[in-house]
Nucleic acid binder design. Sequence first.
RNA 1: GCGCCCGUAGCUCAGGGGAUAGAGCACCGGAUUCCUAAUCCGGGUGCCGCAGGUUCAAAUCCUGCCGGGCGCACCA
Length: 577
Amino acid sequence: MNIVELENCLIELVGDVILNRYDCSCREFTLTTPPPNIDADYAIACFNAAKILKKSPQMIAQEIISHFKPVEWLADVSAQGPYVNFRLEPAFLCQTVIHQALASADEFGKTSLTNPRTVLIEYSSPNTNKPLHLGHIRNNVLGMAIVNLLTSQGHHVIPASIMNDRGIHICKAMVAYTHFFLGKTPKTENMKGDHFVGQCYVAFELAAKSNSELLEESRQLLREWEAGNTEVHQLWEQLNSWVYEGFNETYTRLGSLFDLVQYESETYKLGRKIVENGLSSNVFYKQDDGSIWVDLTDTGLDHKALLRADGTSLYVTQDLGVAVERFRKYHLDQVIYVVASEQNYHFNVLFELFRRLGYDWWNRCYHLNYGMVYLPEGKMKSREGKVVDADTLMDQMKLLALEVMEDSRIAVDYNDKDSIAEAIGTGAIKYYILKVNPSKDIHFDPKESLSFEGATGAYIQYTYARIQSVYRKSHWSESLLNFDASALSTLEELNLVRTLLRYPGVLKSAAEELNPAKVCMYLWELAKAFNGFYHKHRIIDAESDSLRKARLALAVATGYGIRSGLTVLGIKPLDRM
RNA sequence: GCGCCCGUAGCUCAGGGGAUAGAGCACCGGAUUCCUAAUCCGGGUGCCGCAGGUUCAAAUCCUGCCGGGCGCACCA
């Protein structure tokens, strides 16, 4: 019996009692974890059943326990007020949890569904006129975590990105390049390509303040670009290729992966076509100046422009094309757009457009909005270059990790100091961001984010490294699967096993709620439980061989849990640190 | 002005109808001849923004107000 089966079994047993007593099938029970002051592994609340059976929840709890058939692996079933609490036989608990973790190893906690969905997850989707900043980090880190979460539940996931590689923003950078940076390249400036182009963009915004002709120039450039002017396209391609080079480096460090990358420059035409079709079917209307609009006022939204008077495309235009192409290409059950909450209105409009255009998949689109990232001095402004740059932040974190490694009180035989420091640095950033609920804003505190203590990525990586170190030093070479579960009996051991027991459920609900923060909080508790156990008890030189083996099995099992969870979060587990 | 989101400990955040509202940081004290001290143990904090309402039960749901954020582009 595995953990999921065990949980289903408990619910069924309770349901059977009700079925026998009332001749009605009542499945209104959900299994919960009781608070720490209750000495039980699972609890069932009787409030819902009380409503259906029209009896007090206390009474139902009483009836359940008095008619509950004894089960050999349950040490205790008791009613406390409206709750029925279950305590598992400790040896059974340890056997079930540890064995499952050891046997499934890296797959621990994951499930495979009988009806997996095909889900396209759009994230990252940068503009190609500036380097990635802290806001993009949140997007990428969240996006990948969602990808991993859904994959862990057996869904078929397509991570996708769209490169916003055309539009007025690129043209601005191009104008600044021809005016102020001609002849220079990222190489001559010794810069990453995306930073070089970003520098052009910031220079434009600065110069445009006192020279309004520059803006008109960039508009003209956009028209020429859409008209297919070869020279303009050459310059455009040159700048974009620099940017992609830079992005790839950052993506590699962040661990962002994509199965599908679409380019706005290739999909905007389809978008324009859709708008024209919508116009001829009277879903949209044309203004006197030639611009095309939609009237959404009857759904509480506003009028929205879909094509400029000069015929050039807008942001929404291309989003239409991208979506249509995706649904043509794949059989998608769902599309999740991972985009900041400042674009909530945009997605309301977009999904309403899908609906009005008659696409039956309009309600399979979901906008996973997440909160903003604020600096101590307020909102980031890329136009002014007032941002926390992604590359710089990762560099800083890595340096800090190196410092802590130097200062360590323990002489660790590092095999690859540099990559370990990199993993600790990026891990710290990822955990710091992922531990807050996506819906909430993050107030970025540089000092706090630099910390490796408390609920941090490093704390969890450290715990994992510690486990691996213990395992190495134990020189254990045979299988641990036939450990003696009855050897484990102390408070700390059982607390650890009980925490491990929760992992599959945590992963599942984190995936259902699209909330990686749940995994973060859980891993913190798991690591804490292990460290408490570790300090109190000896593993390698335990009192007996069977205890030594059982504790080692518990430690390794915990390692698999941490490893699995960290991997979902996109944080690298380290054998040494 | 209109729409959406958020107000929980000094700070950052969990909990989102149900068991005594919890963590981390910060602050103070303690633990290392011993498997990684990036660790562990101990010490205390709350009109859960305010006011009504619904409920056997409200930090949690509803209404209003106050405070903060984001949007309401022929920008992306």
